[in-house]
Simulated scan of single mutants.
Amino acid sequence: MTTEATGTPDGPPAGFREGVPCWVDAQLPDVAAGRRFYGELFGWTFDETEGPEAGRYVQAYGEGRPVAALAPKRDGRMPTVWTVYLATADARATAARIKDAGGQLVTEPVRVGPAGTMALAADPEGAVFGLWQGDEHPGFGKQREPDSYCWTEVYSRDKALVDPFYEDVFGFDALEIEEAGVPFRIWSPAGTEAGPETAVGGRSLVTGEFAAEMPGHFLVYFSVTDCDATVAATRRLGGRVRVEPLDTPFGRMAVLADDQRAVFAVLEEPVQGSVEDPSQG
């Protein structure tokens, strides 16, 4: 991994506040196919030094800046999925809070060379997310710009169980709103006033539109300049459309799956004045 930013011992990874999404990766059966799909869809390039095409962890870049990574599935029983990582100053301390709050550790904190320390966790309903304590690799070099990460939300069935979990573990300030008739909760970093201008993630509900067996899960969004064109490109590249393009108060969005069935969303944000990035410390 190639970024040179350095974390600090008494704060979150450089540039990212506690609990803020700072990285995403996709676990895929075929990393080489993933490179072709996302390379064409988003214009990403990939770090050739991370290993052979057969598939070690491969970092993706947008305009030369780190945006995501693709990783090979080590076990065919593992889901093909995009995972979001939340920034932490101390992965072991956060892991302990996760357990105390009713969550579980899928992977205990482990050092990833000089890049940082990672862990995988699950909330009380089983939605999986990562922790990242950055060192030489603090996280996104590009985000909230076209063809890069812009948002995440967790889908749950029991908000009374899930909401306190994330707010206790990460200290989020929260605001309950309604989106298309569904109660939706947005989270802002601790110490900020919760609202659309400061939100870094949210919680939606698994409603009757989902399959009965659908578990709690995270959905990762990427910003695009043209939602409909991205949907058309996804189909052309062998992917699928889970939710057709629709207009929301936050922009035009769609839910897609790549040609290996990893699900993600895209958002074409309305043109507006610039706002302060709440992820930055």
Rank of each mutant, 00 (worst) to 15 (best):
118 M>D: 11
135 D>S: 13
105 L>W: 06
178 E>H: 15
116 G>P: 01
207 T>D: 14
116 G>E: 04
131 L>A: 06
96 A>L: 03
134 G>T: 04
195 G>L: 04
198 T>L: 05
166 Y>S: 06
159 K>F: 04
137 H>I: 00
202 G>K: 04
137 H>C: 09
196 P>N: 10
174 A>V: 01
158 D>I: 03
124 P>M: 00
162 V>C: 09
190 A>S: 12
172 F>K: 13
97 R>H: 05
189 P>M: 03
108 E>N: 13
130 G>V: 00
183 P>F: 06
115 A>D: 15
102 G>E: 01
181 G>W: 09
208 G>T: 04
169 V>G: 03
193 E>H: 14
197 E>F: 08
131 L>Y: 04
119 A>G: 15
156 S>V: 15
211 A>P: 15
135 D>T: 12
108 E>T: 06
189 P>F: 04
124 P>W: 00
161 L>W: 04
98 I>H: 05
193 E>R: 14
198 T>W: 00
161 L>M: 07
129 F>D: 11
188 S>C: 14
181 G>A: 07
191 G>Q: 08
105 L>I: 00
194 A>Y: 10
164 P>V: 00
136 E>Y: 09
124 P>H: 00
124 P>V: 03
133 Q>S: 07
127 A>I: 01
189 P>C: 05
196 P>M: 07
97 R>E: 09
160 A>G: 12
134 G>Y: 04
117 T>K: 11
118 M>R: 09
167 E>S: 11
99 K>S: 07
96 A>I: 02
150 C>V: 04
199 A>L: 06
186 I>S: 13
139 G>I: 00
176 E>P: 15
101 A>C: 06
118 M>G: 12
99 K>T: 13
184 F>W: 10
177 I>W: 05
188 S>V: 06
129 F>H: 11
159 K>S: 14
136 E>Q: 13
166 Y>K: 07
172 F>E: 05
201 G>I: 00
185 R>W: 14
174 A>E: 03
177 I>P: 14
181 G>S: 07
137 H>M: 07
109 P>Q: 02
139 G>Q: 02
164 P>F: 00
195 G>H: 10
150 C>I: 00
119 A>Q: 13
173 D>G: 09
120 L>G: 15
107 T>E: 13
150 C>H: 09
164 P>I: 00
126 G>N: 12
190 A>C: 11
121 A>Y: 02
131 L>V: 01
126 G>Y: 00
112 V>K: 15
193 E>P: 05
106 V>P: 14
99 K>M: 03
205 L>Q: 14
105 L>V: 03
180 A>N: 11
157 R>K: 07
147 D>W: 01
158 D>S: 06
125 E>C: 07
144 R>P: 11
162 V>T: 08
162 V>R: 09
180 A>S: 13
152 T>K: 04
119 A>R: 10
96 A>H: 02
152 T>V: 03
127 A>V: 00
121 A>M: 07
173 D>Q: 12
127 A>E: 07
184 F>D: 13
165 F>D: 02
110 V>G: 15
139 G>L: 01
102 G>P: 01
143 Q>C: 10
179 E>I: 08
132 W>A: 04
195 G>E: 08
194 A>W: 07
171 G>N: 08
108 E>H: 11
135 D>Y: 08
98 I>K: 02
135 D>Q: 11
129 F>V: 03
127 A>Y: 01
154 V>T: 11
